[in-house]
Design a protein around this nucleic acid. Structure first.
Lengths: 135, 135
DNA sequence: GTATATGCAAACAATTTGCACGCCT
DNA sequence: AGGCGTGCAAATTGTTTGCATATAC
């Protein structure tokens, strides 16, 4: 399929690229509206799907909602149990990879990728602050 | 809150305990109906939540849906990209845990738990079979 | 007896989709 | 010009909830 480079698609990707907050579709929608006031939420969802299909962004599942990430290099995520925000953890490739490779070879499945996610309470929530929700 | 040991709750837990297919609420509902035909889906959801709160089962998020697991000891999951089914991988605690612990201590967050998930194509799908969907 | 649990249906929230029109290329 | 993309609203999907009744204890 021949893809068009629309204003909407460009802006959605641009906004997602400029944040590290792993936002939801709705958060992105609110931001994009500042520039294209009559954009629809459906368009945001459609473009996020396109960008994902093209491998430009990642979709992170949050149980009920999806979050999106324009950072596609190897890294992990930490999710705060209190505010729900997602933070990046650098990919400790030297330490983990050989061990995971060992497991993936021996587990009996053809593993194409894996994902580690950490959970706990983020710094602001530990301090009792109200975190700005990125959703 | 004082909990009652109802027929419905007992059966839901029993059915979940006897499968390793990590089923969805709807799959469980269909099974329970064989014994309690007029049970409602809402009751299944309510009881799954109770069982989870009591720590008897785990909820596994599958993007849009939830899946449930009565196996609460440490183990990993493998999810097939084709059929969506979830399989158990034995927890190779000696190999992985120290490395993950190292990462969780050094990542800068207060990590209370973590989760590793593997993705790929399961045996039946690799053979081109139609897998029975557990959802 | 009484509070917890149930069945039912309506409500919800996140996401997807059908359709007529609009705008990249 | 042609077809992909859009806005809008309705439809779908998974899950939750209010309420009157039933049941475990």
């Amino acid at each position: 399929m021949q893809r068009r480079n629309t204003q909407q698609r460009r802006l959605i990707y641009d906004i997602l690229s400029r944040t590290d907050s792993h936002p939801t579709a709705d958060w992105i929608y609110e931001r994009v509206k500042r520039y294209i006031p009559n954009i629809s939420l459906g368009t945001v969802y459609r473009n996020l799907k396109v960008l994902k299909d093209e491998g430009l962004i990642l979709e992170i599942s949050d149980g009920k909602q999806s979050r999106y990430d324009a950072r596609i290099d190897d890294h992990y995520h930490f999710r705060c149990d209190v505010c729900g925000n997602v933070y990046d953890i650098e990919y400790d490739i030297i330490e983990i990879n050989p061990k995971v490779d060992q497991l993936r070879r021996s587990c009996g499945f053809k593993v194409s990728r894996f994902n580690i996610e950490f959970y706990g309470i983020c710094r602001s929530c530990a301090r009792g602050e109200e975190s700005e929700k990125n959703n």
